[in-house]
């Protein structure tokens, strides 16, 4: 069986600076991959290359099909959705409109506005509010709901717990569990390693643009992970 997502020697540059040095990674359907690593290790850059936001060297495959170089706006219809770092909602649109925009490509599947509001019932009373007026946690929920609206095969989530109160983070991760249970393949970047390990079926630790350690969470010792994280 082919992998849902596979990366073969992926590189990326910001100007002359090389941010990724030959990343090789793969995810089977239904897996949850956690990318961990220190600030500047290349986690967000890697997410941006996968969703087509940043040009990449090497090769990226989705369902065995080479998608390297395909621009971001075409990848959504092919099954990749992204929850960007910092939520990046459309501030002048309402909550309802933000979720509707997420379903622009009309990819068929189980997710609809009703299903998103079932997942995050606290958004129902906020439907008509401008996205700008929501709390950080609510904004994060809208950002996840917006991404789900395209019924993605692969959901990329960048720092979904950043800056949120622990109780809200718990709520959001309960939703992530439900999304996983629905069979969606997830790649997530998580600052909180404990959190990342608890949801992941497979962990990749990045260090200075390279994979410094990978494996199933249960197989990785605390020591090995710490060494890979800090590069000692």
């Amino acid at each position: 069986m082919t992998d849902l997502l596979s990366l073969d020697g992926v590189t990326a540059h910001y100007g002359l600076f090389q941010a990724l040095h030959g990343i090789t990674l793969s995810a089977r359907a239904g897996e949850t991959i956690a990318l961990v690593g220190a600030n500047g290790a290349g986690k967000t850059t890697l997410m941006r290359t996968i969703c087509g936001d940043l040009p990449a060297g090497g090769r990226i495959f989705l369902h065995g099909k080479d998608i390297t170089g395909i621009p971001a706006h075409r990848l959504n219809a092919m099954g990749i959705a992204m929850v960007p770092e910092g939520r990046k909602l459309f501030p002048s649109l309402t909550v309802d409109e933000n979720t509707q925009i997420g379903g622009y490509t009309k990819r068929p599947g189980a997710w609809s506005r009703e299903a998103v509001y079932d997942l995050f019932p606290e958004l129902i009373k906020r439907r008509a509010n401008k996205a700008l007026d929501l709390s950080g946690g609510e904004q994060q929920m809208v950002a996840i709901g917006r991404a789900l609206m395209s019924n993605p095969d692969l959901l990329l989530m960048d720092e979904i717990s950043l800056g949120l109160a622990p109780i809200v983070v718990n709520q959001i991760y309960e939703a992530v569990d439900k999304i996983r249970a629905a069979g969606t393949t997830i790649v997530l970047v998580e600052q909180d390693i404990g959190r990342g390990l608890s949801v992941a079926t497979h962990v990749y630790c990045l260090l200075e643009g390279r994979v410094s350690l990978e494996g199933k969470p249960a197989d990785l010792s605390q020591k090995a992970l710490t060494d890979a994280y800090f590069g000692v």
Binding site: H73, N76, A77, K88, F90, L93, N98, Q100, I101, Y104
Partner: peptide
Amino acid sequence: MLGRAFRATSDDPEVVALMGID
């Protein structure tokens, strides 16, 4: 939908691409 896409593009043309809008 197209009207909303116009407004979303005005807000953020980069993020709008992630929603499948060119």
